[in-house]
Design a protein around this nucleic acid. Structure first.
Lengths: 197, 197
DNA sequence: TGACTAACAGATATTGAAATCTGTCAGCGA
DNA sequence: TCGCTGACAGATTTCAATATCTGTTAGTCA
């Protein structure tokens, strides 16, 4: 018993997330994180080379956790149009609920997204892959007519940027939002679909 | 001769634009504007109720001037798909050239766009009207198949937000940009088009 | 040896006093 | 009368001194 608690990257990330939520992005310092873990701040630098890398690691963890449901939809079976619709609506809903429920972490993510941060870019790339995967399925099923699935995925991702990029988050309370999303997604799906007659 | 130069709103706007370019949005003051016009700053307040309203008036003038070519395309004759394509590419090109050529005014516009400023919202509404007008033409020509032209216009506007909203301006140097725009516009036009076979 | 601390230099943030700005208005001069 | 000025109060910004933070490293302890 009386086990020695070791300092792991995971524990540091956990503590950093707490500190970020408590003090906010602007005020949170590495010293705060060290204090929360009851170690010297030098110890934190043994596991993360800089404050920026720590922040990015926290954001990555947060993004991966938040977007887990999307991977599932991308990998599922069933008709591609419904799945793409579901995937996009889920992404939009995730982002929206995070702004409301975890605003301080969202601000961190916004700050990182505004620098052209590697972590966020990589994550975005991953999401585009998922969309491309659904679209490829649609092509195989004969319901989508698309020359380049990856390019089409990027276009769909670009086209919905207003509803998932944090820079637009203050417009997400627009009462007309659901109707506008419906119109936008309908337009995009029609654009992908093979002409039926 | 020796004509008395009267202080008009127009002259104030002119001077304000100069001051904004010279000192930048953050540093420009009403006192600077007054100094440039060789009057007391109280005189400026005789024509504009606040610094904010002055800034907005400058932005409006700037936006109206910059976007003049768009109105022309919207009102022109000819097949709607080509016109819509041209209109969107022109808007994107205007925004891009302004970031490059007039960065300080662009920053002002960005700042205004980030507050939910009335002037910018009204201007956006005007642009959506223009798109709706082109789309209606397309419906009349039988080349577009759309239930609600206004809603479709909003969807098209939303879908291209990444390439005309100033919040994304630091991504406009992406070398893949032209290809991505091509893919996006093709997708949108296909989404609007009536099925031909 | 290897994880940690304590002390450090340079960079960044905070603070409070002083300067400047915004917006108002009584009054001047044409 | 009408357009402008100059002085003003309160809000905001600047500036420089001070404190805190970031990132490094020599050295401690188990």
């Amino acid at each position: 018993m009386n086990e020695v608690v070791v300092l792991t990257p995971e524990r540091i990330l956990e503590a950093t997330e707490d500190v970020l939520r408590r003090f906010g992005l602007a005020k949170a310092t590495v010293v705060d994180v060290a204090r929360a873990l009851d170690v010297s701040h030098g110890s934190v630098y043994r596991h993360f080379p800089s404050k920026a890398s720590l922040r990015q690691a926290v954001a990555k963890r947060w993004l991966d956790r938040a977007n887990a449901p999307l991977a599932e939809i991308a990998e599922a079976d069933g008709p591609a149009p419904e799945r793409l619709d579901k995937w996009l609506r889920t992404m939009i809903e995730i982002k929206y609920s995070k702004v409301c429920e975890d605003p301080e972490m969202f601000r961190t993510y916004l700050a990182l997204a505004q620098d052209a941060c590697e972590v966020v870019k990589a994550h975005k790339e991953l999401l585009v892959e998922q969309v491309a995967h659904i679209i490829s399925d649609g092509v195989k099923q004969g319901v989508f007519e698309v020359a380049d699935a990856k390019a089409a995925a990027r276009a769909v991702f670009d086209a919905t940027v207003r509803y998932h990029h944090p820079a637009h988050s203050d417009e997400w309370n627009d009462p007309a939002k659901p109707a506008r999303i419906d119109a936008l997604l309908a337009l995009l799906l029609k654009g992908l679909e093979a002409c039926k007659r």
